[in-house]
């Protein structure tokens, strides 16, 4: 039914991503399709990684661990943006298109009255992407 799953991950908030990671792992195993873990980092040092290389390494480690855990094929696709907080959903949508993923599994927070202030990235991706989007609450 699906060919390739794309999972956006925020390496700084892995604790809240566990359910989404498990969901993606199950789906990939069930359909026997690969998963690409996409992470977006800024170009300046951050809490997660102090250089883009370090970020890439951590994302590759995550992909390897997920592949092991679920017995699936997994790759990592680290991306940089000069301004990740403003560009995130745009960068993700482009990655979905260009990597040829047809299913996006991503975590997002439950709807909240404050969404107008801080729109959810998941909502934005779902609204504009041509792939199917599975939002994990």
């Amino acid at each position: 039914m699906y060919r390739k799953i794309l999972v956006p991950v925020d390496l700084g908030h892995l604790d809240v991503l566990q359910k989404a990671l498990a969901t993606a792992g199950d789906l990939a195993k069930h359909h026997g399709i690969p998963v690409i873990y996409v992470g977006v980092t800024g170009t300046v040092p951050d809490a997660v990684a102090r250089t883009p290389q370090e970020f890439a390494r951590k994302l590759h480690d995550l992909a390897a661990a997920e592949a092991e855990r679920h017995g699936i094929t997994a790759t990592a696709h680290p991306l940089t943006s000069p301004d990740p907080s403003a560009d995130l959903s745009r960068v993700l949508r482009r990655a979905v298109r260009e990597l040829g993923a047809d299913l996006v599994v991503m975590a997002s927070h439950p709807p909240s009255p404050l969404d107008w202030l801080m729109p959810s990235q998941g909502g934005s991706v779902a609204e504009h992407s041509e792939a199917s989007v599975f939002i994990v609450r």
Binding site: P34, I36, T41, P52, Q53, F55, A56, H60, D61, A63, A64, A67, E68, T73, A74, T75, A76, H77, P78, L79, T80, S81, R94, A95, E98, L99
Partner: peptide, 29 residues
């Protein structure tokens, strides 16, 4: 990276990024 599948796929992902210059890959090393 202990899993060989990951390694080969990582290489594949690299190839893919070369085909798709619009997605700016992490400038490795």
């Amino acid at each position: 990276m202990s899993d060989p599948r990951v390694d080969s796929d990582a290489a594949e992902a690299q190839d893919q990024t070369e085909d798709t210059p619009e997605v700016e890959p992490i400038p490795e090393p």
